[in-house]
Write a protein that binds this DNA or RNA. Structure first.
Lengths: 103, 103
DNA sequence: TTTGACTTGTCAAATTCTGTCCAATGTAAG
DNA sequence: CTTACATTGGACAGAATTTGACAAGTCAAA
């Protein structure tokens, strides 16, 4: 699930308008529309604010937001057909690296 | 292992100078020095050329290069102490996503 | 046809990326 | 010490990308 889709789902299920969210985020409606369709990336601060407004855990949205970014990096870096295996390896190495960091 | 370190290791073990690699990559020595220390990121094209010159599989270097980029995204996006768990979740989700893509 | 929600395209300002140059530092030999 | 060469550091210009704002567009319901 993409962050964009999750935001839309939550917003609609709560009967809120883009206009209302935009106002709270202090951006204009077109910008929010783009964020909600994944055409523009939200800033971390905005993701947190959205979680608050839509009453979900920031953890959930941050994880989705990070996933989008990771997939973007991979997609931009190289084509899947050619480097799929290396992408999977890279994800594994990144995981190991992060696990080994002390908190 | 960072791409930068691997490049340095390979170059030195083969007794090559930065100057020689720079020439083949058509960039100047300071630029190569920076790539080798991880201060600047190589372009994909350069990574492939380096693999060729240093006679290693492009797959190996591309995987390291992708790992660097993934870790960068995560580091820039959020601080580890706070979002380590979400980063790990994101890596898992990205992995699933990529595995499910048809070649 | 009017209204309100949402989307699309464009644009300039800001930011980031890329490579070059020059100067500094390090180092080994004579 | 001096020379010669490898490497690094910092400043910088131009290119490329991102950002936010705006005007105009579509669409659906009333």
């Amino acid at each position: 699930m993409k962050l964009a889709n999750r935001i839309k789902e939550l917003r609609e299920s709560q009967g809120l308008l883009q206009r209302q969210l935009s106002a709270q985020l202090e951006i204009d409606t077109p910008m929010f529309s783009k964020i909600e369709r994944g055409e523009r990336r939200a800033k971390q601060e905005q993701v947190l604010k959205i979680a608050e407004i839509l009453k979900v855990s920031p953890d959930e949205l941050i994880a989705l937001w990070l996933t989008d970014q990771i997939l973007d990096v991979i997609a931009n870096a190289c084509s899947y057909e050619k480097w799929k295996e290396q992408a999977l390896q890279a994800l594994k190495m990144a995981e190991t690296d992060i696990k080994n960091k002390k908190d």
